[in-house]
Design a binder for these strands. Structure first.
Length: 571
DNA sequence: GCCGTTTTCGGCCCGACTGTTTTCAGTCG
């Protein structure tokens, strides 16, 4: 799913990394990064824009970056980047992955010691070669060594579903401290990002130093990385990093705003504030003209004073939410409560753990009106996929349960395999008797992009298919998304009224927010489903709702917010 | 390198913490 715009963005980011190390002007580096960020999500086709001579209509693209984009479109290279690549070996870039090693230190390790890899940096540190550099002493050397150990020990990011309970316990522990008036989780966790790199925590207290001190002594804390008057960073027993910032309650709103981020959102928001005569920080709004700073006790106040509606954390990714908040056009995001049923659930007829009745009861307990039992089909042998005869048997089971459980409704469904040639592994005649047909690719995920696209589009064209499951096939930390033409899939889905699934399984979260947004923009409808293989997993739903919200989805964009009669009428 | 109903030049987001320093640079979020 790499588009030309993504490739250009990647090249510009790399250029920024190199330029930063080479000591280029900070604002030049930032200009490259800003342009890269904008390009990565730019909806228009880059080649068409270039041909029309309209590249500079993209914000952040001026004369110099336009030239670089043209170079890339023409030759696949950017001259300035090629030159820097020759000057600085690519391995030097990787040094920045070491905590506390930034661009300047990385460059000096290379320029003065010839270090081009993390392994070499480790050897040099052990040999005591780093401490002799001006400005770096024994402690810096030890810090680098420790950073490398940390890097080797920690996996990059953890799943939202893993971090949330840990964060919840820490938040409770903070709230239980006597001087703490309020405590909240912030950062990417509060924005409900699919994965988080650390846990950010905030506390409102008249005695920040005391709270910071107490925090560093929580039993879950394995190691204190840094601790000051108002901030601390620790490593928890399970390897996660947690950051705390504490301030007096008068500042709590700006503190929450600041620590929730994202970084990109904050940068743009501060620019917005500056344009209106304020400097914004975690302490509040300070008039640029001088005068008393204005502390903000609530987050709403921060946005309000800047002439903006409060922005839901899930949207704070600098994807146009500030402009939308200014013009009163923020979406009314879909909520957990709006979901009336789960449309992708496996029973013990295939590879699920629970009986259909157990699943139905679990759905009833969760307040749902309906559930679709979507067992695997025969070609997925490993999952005890059902053949035509077993579907007929299962139908009798479902009919009997529906008679007993009404008005709750069990929908008879299947997760049908899309074969290599794009056909489905159940005959149309069987599909036509099902209430819900979910089509999915489980094999040939690494196929050529054109072929994968063609398979999905062909499945969409089958008149019985209602939903495409986990459309990109990514599994976080295990498998990248399939290479295919997402826009072509969106076009086909819109044309045939097929919904795309937002799969709520914590390590799938597929579609993610970015894809959801594109789908909505193209008029494609969504469903949010758990893909549960046991009754407990119906609780994954909020993670899927989170992805939909991050993609600006409203209830009307999501089919399973509808009552069952209005759900089936379109299918 | 980008940008402009105050500007085509002089701005550009803000502050904590650390280490190695006598005032600050680098890193991070």
């Amino acid at each position: 799913m790499t588009t030309i715009a993504n490739s250009v963005a990647a090249a510009l980011r790399e250029l920024a990394d190199y330029a930063e190390m080479a000591g280029e002007d900070f604002y030049k580096v930032r200009a490259y990064r800003r342009a890269a960020d904008t390009l990565a999500t730019w909806p228009e086709d880059l080649r068409a824009l270039a041909e029309a001579g309209r590249l500079r209509t993209i914000p952040g693209v001026g004369e110099a970056i336009e030239k670089k984009i043209m170079q890339f479109l023409g030759t696949g290279h950017i001259e300035a980047l090629d030159r820097l690549r020759e000057e600085i070996p690519p391995g030097v870039l990787t040094l920045r992955r070491i905590p506390d090693v930034g661009p300047r230190t990385a460059f000096r390790l290379y320029a003065e010691l010839g270090i081009t890899s993390i392994a070499e940096a480790e050897r040099a540190a052990r040999a005591g070669q780093i401490r002799v550099l001006k400005g770096l002493g024994e402690r810096s050397e030890a810090r680098i060594l420790k950073g490398i150990e940390l890097l080797n020990r920690l996996s990059d990011r953890v799943l939202l579903a893993v971090a949330l309970p840990v964060a919840g316990r820490l938040r409770q522990a903070l709230r239980a401290l006597p001087t703490v008036q309020a405590a909240e989780t912030a950062g990417s966790l509060r924005r409900l990002a699919p994965t988080v790199g650390d846990i950010d925590l905030l506390a409102a207290t008249e005695n920040p130093a005391l709270v910071v001190d107490a925090f560093t002594q929580f039993p879950e804390v394995a190691e204190v990385v840094s601790a000051g008057e108002s901030k601390a960073t620790v490593i928890l027993q399970d390897g996660l990093q947690a950051d705390l910032m504490a301030l007096p309650p008068a500042h709590y709103g700006s503190l929450l705003q600041h620590f929730t981020g994202s970084q990109a959102h904050n940068v743009t928001l501060r620019g917005w504030a500056r344009d209106r005569g304020f400097s914004l920080s975690e302490y509040g709004l300070a008039p640029l003209a001088g005068g008393e700073p204005i502390p903000c006790a609530t987050e709403n106040e921060v946005y309000e004073r800047l002439g903006l509606a409060w922005i839901p954390p899930e949207l704070r990714e600098d994807q146009g939410e500030i402009a939308a908040a200014a013009s009163g056009t923020l979406p009314h995001l879909v909520t957990d409560k709006a979901i009336r049923g789960d449309l992708h659930v496996h029973s013990n007829w295939s590879d699920g753990v629970n009986t259909i009745e157990e699943l139905a009861q679990a759905a009833i307990v969760r307040g749902y009106d309906y559930i679709a039992i979507t067992d695997h089909t025969k070609s997925l042998g490993v999952a005890h996929g059902l053949d035509e005869a077993r579907f007929a048997d299962r139908q009798r089971d479902i009919d009997a349960l529906n008679a007993r459980l009404a008005p709750f409704r069990i929908l008879s469904g299947a997760e049908v395999e899309v074969r290599a040639d794009g056909s489905l592994d159940l005959p149309d005649e069987v599909l036509s008797r099902l209430d819900v047909v979910v089509a999915a690719i489980h094999t040939g995920l690494r196929g050529e992009a054109d072929r994968v696209t063609a398979r999905i589009v062909q499945a969409i064209q089958n008149p019985h298919v209602d939903i495409i499951a986990h459309p990109t096939g990514r599994i976080i930390g295990e498998r990248a998304a399939m290479e295919f033409d997402f826009d072509a899939v969106l076009e086909a889905a819109a044309a045939h009224g097929v919904a795309l699934e937002v799969n709520a399984t914590p390590n799938r979260l597929d579609l993610d927010g970015e894809h959801v947004r594109r789908a909505i923009q193209r008029g494609v409808r969504l469903v949010i489903s758990t893909d549960a293989h046991r009754a407990d997993s119906l609780d994954y739903m909020p993670f899927g709702v989170a992805m939909a919200r991050r993609g600006w989805a409203e209830a009307a964009d999501v089919l399973n917010t509808r009552p069952v009669d209005r759900l089936l009428v379109d299918w």
